[in-house]
Structure formats: structure tokens, C-alpha cells
Design a protein around this nucleic acid. Sequence first.
RNA 1: GCAGGGAUAGCGAAGUGGCCAAACGCAUGUGACUGUAAAUCACACGACUUAUGUCUUCGGGGGUUCGAAUCCCUCUCCCUGCA
Length: 413
Amino acid sequence: MSSVQFTITHKLDGTLARAGKIATPHGSIQTPAFIVGGTKATVKALTPQQVDELGGQAVLANTYHLMLQPGAAVVHEGGGLGAYMHWSKPTFTDSGGFQVFSLGMAYKKGIDATSHSEKGSGDLATHSTHQLAKVTDDGVTFRSHLDGTKLTMTPESSMELQHAIGADIHMAFDEATSPLAGRQYLRQSLDRTHLWAERSLKQHNKLNEQHREHDEPEQALFGIVQGGREEDYRRESAQLLGHMDFDGYGVGGVYEPGEISHVVRWVNETLPEHKPRHLLGMGAQPADLFLGVEFGIDTFDCVAPTRQARNGALYTYSGRINIKNARFVHDFTPIDTNCDCYTCQHFTRSYVHHLFKADEILGAVLASIHNERFIVSTIDHIRESLMDGSFYAYKQTFLNQYYGAAHAKTYLS
RNA sequence: GCAGGGAUAGCGAAGUGGCCAAACGCAUGUGACUGUAAAUCACACGACUUAUGUCUUCGGGGGUUCGAAUCCCUCUCCCUGCA
């Protein structure tokens, strides 16, 4: 019996979309849901109470980052992730697999697939000479980005770290590939990710057994589907992992909303229907959410809403604005008049603009509350629209207003 | 009054004969950010401009020189000593 139970309550005919809930030892997540980014056991700039008040249902932390600081053992000693950070609702941890990519291949290059592919550079397909991570079939050797210490991470060690950290839902150790990786590298990487998935699951089960023996709560593990933009690889990966006894699945290696309607569709057409599906790292913009849900995703996580908030880029229902722009100096209206967040209820654009220009910490706080609430609220409405059948109408109205009719067309076909 | 030091683009501050429209920092403007090396990063920042283009600049004025922010003279203002 898995430590998490997924129930589908509504499905949207003719699509892969569903609404439901994931029951965990720390309460249920109503899906589709946005999982708030809490990489280092903190949602940057926000207290857990603020995250709770803006509607956050769960938080996702990162194994690699916590391993370095403060150390998985310290988190364990502090009562596990939730207790340590004073978050009583469900928690996830990512395996560190993404850091294989971000500190490896993508080191100092970024992952902007569009700009790279337009240049046709193909840079991301080769290893950077300065990268901090080196991948072998056994695992990954990292140089700590904090102090240069050499570290090794394997599927087994990632599982051990995640069990020490003690989130409700863990991710298998995988290798995220570049959007520019060619079939040859993808093949090699996919085989490795599958091998790692098996090893992750085996180690995870072993650790759960130990938990049972000690009368401790068990944890859940999601397998991660890779395969780049190749349909056969994606379907193969979903098929293979789908037959393994994971509690749910993550879809990794997706970088743009435009990929969702095919890559995510291939995967979710293939994966078993009754297990939850998480789209890793996507949710920076409304299109990600609408398309993800439409093509069968239950949960999302993304650091962009809080990161962009700290950098002054704020969501409004008619598109993104940069609150640092001079035009907001005398704008005494809320960030968005239709937003119900704490920031919009009490503060003006002029004031938030001032906080950013003056480099005051509260600016990051208010902006983070707003952006996170905007995304959470949007996914909440998407869930409601699945339940009352208004999904397509809502999607069309929302995206037209957010992107403008011309751009929105890309996501409405 | 005497001796010495200084005045550079919005601010601070390099530069001391040509590679100077002038380093760098700040401020300003704009853009980016998708499993967080990100409260970060990129670009612009004298004017006009499509410009490797033209024009006007380095306290004011006058010189030397093929060429001056840089050398000389002089004026103005500021700082530090001594009277």
C-alpha cells in the first residue's frame, strides 16, 4: 500500500485532463495543483504562514541543495523537512537530478532552448569545460557550487538523502537532458535514467522497509520520464517506468509551453491513468498550466513565480508587468484589480515600485505573495473549470486576455 | 597674502600629448528569468542617429602642437598648511 493515494474525481471528455486529490500523510492535495518551490526548505521571501494563506497546498524542496546546506542529517534531526521548516502540509523533494543538468551541461549557458536553437549553436549538447558536474552511469560527481568540495550523488545516495530529509513524495534520481541534445545522447541518457529509476526504486523500497520496522511513516516515490522531444523515446520511457511500481510519475526535460501539447501528451497517453503525474519545473506562465492540465498533468512546480517576483516581474491578468518601470511611479492602483492577494488588497503599484527602487526587502515579499497567489489562484480556477465543464471557455478567455489574441492562438489550437 | 593640492559625463572616480565620447562603481532606462549557483543577469546610458556616421564635451578664456582632458599662460571657485 502506497503512502500516497490518488483519486480521480472528474475527467474532461476528449482530453487527458482530470481533477482529483492526492492524499498524503500530511493531508490532501486537490489536483490539479501548483506545488510551491521551496528549494532550500524555504519559499524564498515568504513565511510558511504566508504560503498557506495564499493557497499553497504543498512545497517542493531540493535534495542537492539541502545535502550541501544544512545537510540532510540536520534536516532529519530537526524533525524532517516539514517540521524543520514549520510547514505542516504535504512536501516533495526533487532528487538532485536537475542539478546534473544545471550544474553540468547547462553550466553558465542557461537552458533557453529557443535562443540557442535559433543560433543553431548546439552548445548544450556538449559538455562545458567549466561545469561543476560530471555524469557517469554510476552517478554524478559534483563540485559544490558553494565551496568547491567534490561530492558524488548516485540513485542510492539520493534516496538515502531524501529519506533522511523525509518529504512525503520523493523523485527518482534522473538525468535531465538539454532541449538541444541529439538522439544519440538522448538514447544514452535515457538508458541511464531508466537504470537509475530501477536503482532508485529498489533503494527506496529498502528504506521504506526500514521505516516500517521502526514504525516510522513511509514515503512515496515518483519515477521520472525523460526522452527529450523524441516521441518514441518518450513513449518508451513512459511505458517502461509505467510498468515499475512507482507511486506516481514526473515528467522532466520539458522547457517550453509549446512542447506540452506533444511531449506531455505522448507521455500521459502512455502512463497508467490511475497514478498522479507531476510536470517538473513548469509553471512560469499561464499557458504552462492550461496546457499541462489539458494533456494530463496533475501537479506542477516552478521557481519562476517567486524568482520573477524578486526581480520585479509581476503577473497581471492582462500580461506580465515589470514593477520597476518608471511608468508606475504615480500609479496608485493595485498590481491587479482582480487579484485577491494580500498585496493587491493593501498596496499600490507605486508603493511596490518604490520598495523595489529602494531595494527594500518588503518589495520581494509583497511581489512573491502576489505572483504565487496568481499562479495558485489560476490553477484553482482551472480545477473548478474541470469540475463544472467550463475548462475550454475559461482557457480561451484567460489566455486571450493574458497574451493577447494573436499570441494566445498558439496555445488554443 | 604666501605655499601646495584640486576642478572629468546625473553623482563618485580613473585617465596626465594621439589607441578618449573618455575605464570603473553608483544612479537611471529597458529587457530576460520555467525540477533556484538567481533579492540575479543582460543591454543602453553626451547629442543626433541605420551607422565602423556626424556634431558638442573633460571649470572659463587664451596659447603651444599635425594632434590637448592631458603641456604653457591667465581667470574663477574649492581644499590643506603657514601667516
